[in-house]
């Protein structure tokens, strides 16, 4: 008995320094695990943003040269008709895309919230385009919107011979084609967000309003939808983000054409930085895009964080 005790104290005494090292290692381990990611984030996100920012102040063309010319590239950018068209398109495309997606998403979510049989199947159908690449979406709609063989011909075959639908080749209307395809792809997602929100609405409140004799449309308008303000907010940020980043849809659906009438900023950046050897100009356009995202994101994150702190 005594012997065993003695052996135990001995082994504990031996272990002590080792255990201390282990403890210290245990303290460091979590930090050690995060280190690679931290380095990657600092270099490949923040470092690269700085790098691009510096590039945008040089007259680099095919290769980076560190010859600083101040804000000359930004002056050139905002003198460039193609860039102005792209910005203009982004406002039009983004605005319509967000608006229609929100409207359609809310509408579908409310309809689906009426204790619908087969709700699961319908939800699956509205949401499946979200699983598809924008390149596939663009390819499909390029065919559907084909001016001679697509929807136009289909409607003609129904007997409406005067129907004309050639937006894809009309420089003034081609942006609407981008909106149609993007809404098809993303509206189901907005529906899913709102449906989740609707399921979280306090049913007692709704019942109380019903007892007071309020009609369902009034209840939706006055009580339910206002309580979903955070969902509107999140959906807006996500859709705006999708719009600003939109690149593949333009590449696949219109190629930026006719001419450059359907270019978006992301396409402008790619073309100038990678195919036209205008690295400085491309970098400047990328920085403006970043500015646009931050202008939407910073107030959003700020209010999110403040909301959490108050809660």
């Amino acid at each position: 008995m005594n012997n065993i005790d003695a052996v135990q104290t001995l082994s504990e005494a031996k272990r002590a320094p080792l255990a201390r090292i282990q403890d210290r290692l245990a303290d460091w381990l979590p930090k050690l695990v995060l280190t690679p990611t931290l380095l990657v984030v600092l270099v490949c996100m923040y470092g690269y943003i700085l790098w691009t920012g510096l590039l945008s102040l040089t007259n680099s063309r095919l290769l980076p040269v560190w010859n600083f010319i101040g804000t000359g590239q930004y002056d050139r950018l905002f003198d460039n008709d193609r860039w102005l068209v792209a910005l203009n398109n982004l406002v039009l495309f983004g605005g319509l895309f967000i608006l229609v997606c929100l409207a359609l998403g809310v509408f579908l979510a409310i309809l689906l919230d009426q204790k619908i049989r087969q709700e699961g199947a319908l939800r699956t159908i509205y949401l499946y385009p979200m699983a598809i690449s924008f390149i596939v979406t663009g390819t499909a709609w390029k065919w559907l919107l084909n001016p001679s063989l697509g929807l136009e011909k289909l409607v003609h075959s129904w007997g409406f011979d005067s129907f004309s639908f050639d937006w894809l080749v009309d420089p003034d209307r081609v942006v609407f084609c981008l909106v149609i395809a993007a809404v098809w792809q993303s509206s189901g997602f907005v529906m899913a967000m709102f449906l989740a929100g609707l399921r979280g609405v306090d049913q007692e409140m709704v019942k109380a309003a019903q007892l007071d004799g309020a009609s369902m449309p009034t209840i939706y308008r006055r009580i339910i939808l206002p309580s979903l303000k955070p969902v509107f907010f999140s959906a807006f940020v996500i859709l705006a983000h999708i719009a600003i980043k939109s690149f593949d849809l333009v590449a696949a659906l219109t190629g930026g054409g006719p001419g450059y009438s359907s270019d978006l900023p992301a396409n402008f950046m790619y073309t100038h930085a990678f195919t036209r050897a205008q690295m400085g100009l491309g970098a400047a356009s990328a920085m403006v895009m970043l500015g646009g995202v931050l202008a939407i994101l910073v107030p959003y994150l700020y209010s999110e964080l403040r909301g959490k702190r108050n809660a």
């Binding site: 931290l38 996100m45 590039l55 994101l297």
Partner: peptide, 19 residues
């Protein structure tokens, strides 16, 4: 660290392509 990382969910990738 987490805050720094979160911003990465939102940056437009155009801004890192050249580097």
């Amino acid at each position: 660290f987490f805050g720094l990382l979160l911003v990465g969910c939102f940056i437009p990738f155009q801004v890192v392509l050249l580097p």
